[in-house]
């Protein structure tokens, strides 16, 4: 039995709700900023919050596919673009806060940080890799690129996530507990994909060869080389 799929109206409602939910931490952060409630070093508080949320949203967007496979709720894919774009928006805020409120456009210091400090280098690389993903997030870009190429490009989200977690890990002075939790979550998400791929490989190996002359049903993505 297939789990129910929401109607277009229901899906629109779900999307709106998820959008508002994703917006909530930003609203709370902005309120904290204007109410002067972010502690003694508000710029640092914003830096940490925006970075954490960029990572959170990145991992949540990477959770969509494994969750779909696990639950059969295939319509979840319809939320993924929004989740990914939220990750991108948080990363933009993270970068902007650093360039603007922290370093006040001191380009020399900014450049030196990117070049000299490995944790800044990888963080910046993660941001740069997000740019083409955000730019090709529209339906029309997807059509222009074609599904396969689009998918290949968007696999770099895995690299972005790995760089993002490395960025966090490297910047921590002593206690790596929190970045370790992120690393474990990411490993689980990427591991789930590898496991799915392995299952698919076994299925294809076990499947009887198609009768000559019969076109395959649906689209078969071959993992096992011919």
């Amino acid at each position: 039995m297939n789990p129910p799929t929401p109607s277009p109206v229901q899906l629109a409602a779900i999307k709106t709700a998820v959008f508002l939910l994703c917006l909530l931490p930003a609203v709370l952060l902005a309120r904290g900023w204007f109410a002067n409630a972010l502690g003694a070093n508000p710029v640092e508080a914003v830096q940490h919050a925006t970075g954490s949320w960029a990572l959170n949203m990145l991992l949540i967007s990477l959770a969509v596919t494994p969750l779909r496979r696990l639950t059969g709720l295939h319509w979840l894919i319809r939320l993924r673009r929004m989740l990914g774009l939220f990750a991108f928006a948080w990363a933009c805020a993270h970068l902007l806060n650093w360039i603007w409120l922290d370093l006040w456009f001191d380009w020399r210091a900014i450049g030196a940080d990117i070049l000299d400090r490995p944790y800044v280098s990888v963080g910046f690389a993660a941001f740069v890799l997000m740019l083409p993903l955000a730019a090709t997030s529209t339906q029309s870009a997807m059509r222009r690129l074609g599904g396969r190429r689009w998918q290949a490009l968007h696999r770099s989200a895995y690299v972005v996530a790995i760089l993002g977690v490395a960025h966090f890990w490297w910047l921590v002075k002593a206690d790596v507990l929190e970045p370790l939790l992120y690393a474990l979550a990411l490993a689980a998400l990427l591991g789930a994909r590898m496991w799915q791929r392995e299952l698919e490989r076994r299925r294809q190996l076990a499947a009887p060869p198609p009768l000559p002359g019969t076109p395959p049903k649906g689209r078969v993505i071959r993992i096992v080389p011919k």
Partner: peptide
């Protein structure tokens, strides 16, 4: 980790 030329 930190550029020490400036401080907040």
């Amino acid at each position: 980790r930190w550029n020490q030329a400036t401080e907040r």
